[in-house]
């Protein structure tokens, strides 16, 4: 299966694999008053190109996992649109959710609880092919092949139960499970966050190798900026359910535009003193996604906040092409009225 021979590629390499438009998901806030809503994902738009790795970063609770679930239709979106390879998802003339799940798979945040504790791991891997119509013996064989590909000896590890595996091994199993039905795109939700540094490096390299081998597109979610920088072609920064910055990986890490991104990078122990940004790390707790701040959601913590920031919500700048670098901050919009706005 190589890049040119993929029968499933409908629109050709230029057509984005996935387009998210104005996705929103609000939860009823428990405990708080009835009307309070958790705006976990609020008006998120982005484009994912074939063969790339898009990194998503943001603090804990900013809605990364919720976004991932929305993309797989594991939860119903409140509004917005999802287009997979040119076909709207769940729309009358588009692609069904079942078909979407044949094309998009996910590796979950918690490597332990995402495996059935009462199932030998090879059966967990075989479950996908089985569900998609393969006979049990065939599915088992596919699972064993896939275990080999993620670097696990199927004779040794296949019959084991999740609690008999190390964290790294479990995550390899999870990757095998996601790849077993030969998806075109994989969402990796904090796939390496729980692992030791050395194991993390191994798994990251495995992911890169698999990506080439199977011609995959990755959506790589993490709060570890170094990891995101290592693996991503482009990066999307989220803050309280919104996209605040989007651009090529190197551009974001070398020249971040949004004060939040700068703060994030500043709070990150950088290896290279030249890249250390002269900004204080993000101070204060992140405001709650229940009834988030008005205007720019970052304004209570932003060192450059001005009255306009609390009044109007900044637009994520015009996004034109693949390599555009945009951020949602009034300082970048000459017409905003922010005193530091570039003229």
């Amino acid at each position: 299966m190589s890049a040119t021979a993929d029968q499933r590629d409908i629109g050709g390499p230029a057509q984005p694999l996935l387009i998210a438009r104005n996705l929103a998901k609000h939860f009823a806030a428990r405990g708080a008053s009835k009307s309070a809503r958790v705006r976990a994902v609020d008006d998120v738009s982005f484009t994912l190109f074939k063969g790339e790795t898009l990194g998503i970063v943001g603090e804990s609770g900013c809605g990364k996992s919720t976004l991932a679930r929305l993309l797989l239709h594991l939860i119903q979106r409140d509004s917005g649109e999802l287009i997979f390879d040119g076909e709207p998802v769940g729309a009358p003339r588009g692609i069904t959710v079942a078909a979407l799940r044949r094309n998009v798979q996910m590796v979950f945040q918690d490597s332990y609880s995402s495996l059935n504790p009462r199932m030998p791991v090879q059966d967990s891997v075989a479950f996908g092919p089985f569900v998609h119509g393969r006979r049990k013996s065939e599915a088992r064989r596919a699972a064993r092949d896939m275990l080999v590909k993620v670097g696990l000896n199927p004779d040794l590890f296949g019959p084991r139960y999740p609690h008999e595996l190390s964290g790294g091994q479990k995550q390899r199993v999870n990757i095998a499970r996601a790849l077993a039905i030969e998806p075109r795109m994989v969402i990796l939700d904090e796939a390496v966050s729980a692992l030791d540094k050395s194991v993390e490096a191994q798994v990251l390299n495995l992911l890169r190798a698999l990506k080439q081998q199977f011609n995959l597109t990755y959506l790589f979610i993490s709060h570890d900026l170094n990891v995101v920088r290592y693996i991503s072609d482009r990066v999307l920064v989220m803050y309280l359910g919104r996209v605040v910055e989007l651009g090529p990986s190197e551009a974001i890490f070398i020249q971040p535009l949004h004060p939040y991104t700068r703060a994030l990078l500043g709070s990150q122990p950088s290896m290279d003193p030249a890249h250390r940004i002269e900004q204080p790390p993000v101070t204060g707790d992140p405001p709650s996604p229940i009834d988030p701040p008005s205007g720019c959601r970052f304004h209570p913590r932003c060192p450059f906040a001005e009255p306009v920031c609390a009044q109007r919500s900044p637009e994520l700048g015009a996004w034109r092409e693949r390599d555009s670098h945009v951020a949602a901050c009034h300082m970048l919009d000459p017409a905003s009225g922010h005193s530091k706005a570039m003229q």
């Binding site: 594991l74 079942a98 044949r102 995402s114 495996l115 059935n116 479950f127 996908g128 999870n174 499970r177």
Partner: peptide, 21 residues
């Protein structure tokens, strides 16, 4: 638990998930 969601993500229907997971 996550593995149920993982099974749903594989594309399995409710009955299959209940039966196997």
């Amino acid at each position: 638990l996550d593995f149920i969601e993982a099974a749903r993500a594989t594309g399995a229907g409710t009955l299959t998930i209940v039966r196997y997971h």
